[in-house]
Design a protein around this nucleic acid. Structure first.
Length: 438
RNA sequence: GUGGGAGUAGCUCAGCUGGUAGAGCGUCGGUCUGUGGCACCGAAUGUCGCGGGUUCAAUCCCCGUCUCCCACCCCA
């Protein structure tokens, strides 16, 4: 009975606390503002969905679906899963709410927690946070796909431009964008077969992981970090040499579009994406200070995914930012949040002063100031000490003298200067100070 | 899922070859009953991650387990 169980956050999950949460809010606010300027609206899908939705969209054979999902049986015996990512949900919502009848394209962003049961390490958690955006556009019937290659490339470029703008505004350092095209349903399978054949020839020189991937996912071999395999990989056929005409044209136009927008990029022919639904444009953004998990954003085009989920033919492009990693990198660069300060600390003494202090705090808070009002009377020495510790800008001193004269004593903590003034004068002064400090 | 490292006060850590715990910072109080940052004094908080074993005796040695960190896998 007397046993006390110590509870702690589940493996791979964590509490985000002040002052860190200040930075999280700042980052999310920046995303809202930047994405808003590009015409994106926010979508808030559920945290869990039918398991089938993720299995169909992400791919049964991917690790994410195969062994990392938090799935459980609901009481009606259907299988549901905590979302491992949000693109599938956004596509589901697009279909469910008939967004094909909205003005096209539909541009949405989201922020929130995702769940994958992986072994935690730096920049990787079982509950992690993503900031993502998707552009979905219905394909009108009888449309010649070749006709819209330029348009798709421009949309892709704008989406990438938007993430880069967001990172710039966030103050992220060491940002590098890598792009690639992984072809479409026409040319990719052919390339994969070619690659597989080439890999079979050098199978003996590859490590066990890569040997296994020859069969399961040859593209992933390109991703290998093994020093011993680098020479072999460098000699493998590149997909850029095997793209079909449409894919090649789209990729070329993407690069031209990025150039027009002043977005610096590097081509990386070895950049392949892990989720099944990607095609053509893929990209990845890395940043400084992240250990081995240095990808802070990944994205790509996924035409056909909505259709796969039972919707109308629809094109899609999107990305997901790893918010935990973004925050990590910002903190590493010394851009973490400072402790929550106070604009005003109300130091009061005397019963009459308490009433005045409460009213003063109400007015100051109504004007948007951060106010600390001690619940009990304190000696002024102690009150000022506390004001200092909390990082207050001003101490409002209210005692018998102030009550008698109706003049507030205002002390500027940083300089030690002190002055008597009326309530209106103080509000005016602190407003100016606030503008200057922010 | 695999491999390596680590768990001692709220935080950062010390604790020689086994003899049941300490520092700094922080917190709170005092010196200081209308004036803070400094200084000095004092206080509180630990079943030394948890369970078992060896031993007269375990924070220390052994086994198991949990968690964290790092890497692999994979991904954001």
């Amino acid at each position: 009975m007397a046993e006390k169980k110590k509870f702690q956050a589940i493996k791979g999950t964590r509490d985000l606390l002040p002052p860190d949460t200040e930075l999280w809010n700042r980052v999310e606010q920046t995303a809202r503002e930047v994405f808003g300027t590009f015409g994106f609206g926010e979508i808030r899908p559920p945290i869990f969905e039918p398991t089938e939705l993720f299995a169909r969209s992400i791919g049964m054979d991917t690790d994410v679906v195969g062994k990392e999902m938090y799935s459980f049986e609901d009481r009606d015996e259907t299988s549901v899963s905590l979302r491992p990512e949000a693109t599938a949900s956004v596509c589901r919502a697009y279909i469910e709410h008939g967004m094909h009848a909205w003005p096209q394209p539909v541009k949405l962003y989201y922020t929130g927690p995702m769940f994958r049961r992986e072994r935690p390490q730096k920049g990787r958690y079982r509950q992690f946070y993503q900031i993502g955006a998707e552009v979905l556009e219905m394909v009108p019937p009888n449309q010649d796909p070749a006709k819209n290659i330029g348009k798709d490339a421009a949309v892709d470029a704008e989406v990438i431009e938007m993430v880069m703008a967001f990172f710039a505004r966030s103050g992220l350092e060491g940002v590098e964008l890598a792009i690639n095209s992984i072809g479409d349903r026409q040319c990719r399978p052919k390339y994969v077969e070619l690659l597989r054949a080439e890999l079979m020839k050098v199978k003996d020189k590859l490590g066990p992981d890569s040997q296994r991937r020859i069969l399961t996912n040859p593209l992933r071999v390109l991703d290998s970090k093994l020093e011993s395999e680098q020479g072999i990989i460098a000699g493998l056929p590149r997909i850029s040499d095997h793209l079909c005409a449409n894919c090649a044209a789209q990729y070329a136009e993407l690069k031209r579009q990025l150039g027009m927008r002043g977005v610096p990029y590097a081509e990386n022919w070895r950049l392949v994406r892990g989720l099944d639904y990607y095609m053509r444009t893929t990209f990845e953004i890395t940043a400084r200070g992240l250990g081995s998990q240095n990808a802070v954003c990944g994205g790509g085009r996924y035409d056909g995914l909505v259709e796969l989920l039972g919707g109308p033919p629809t094109k899609g492009i999107g990305f997901a930012i790893g918010e935990d990693r973004l925050i990590l990198s910002l903190e590493e660069a010394g851009k973490g949040g400072a402790a929550l300060g106070r604009d005003v600390f109300v130091a009061w003494m005397g019963e009459q002063a308490q009433g005045a202090a409460i009213l003063a705090a109400q007015k100051l808070r109504a004007s948007g100031f951060r106010v600390e009002l001690p619940p009990v009377e304190q000696k002024f020495g102690k009150a000022l000490g506390q004001a200092d510790k909390l990082g207050a800008r001003y101490a409002l001193i209210l005692g018998d003298d102030e009550i008698r004269t109706g003049q507030w004593t205002v002390k500027t903590l940083a300089s030690g200067e002190q002055a008597k003034m009326s309530e209106a004068e103080f509000l005016e002064m602190s407003r100016k100070g606030k503008r200057l400090s922010s």
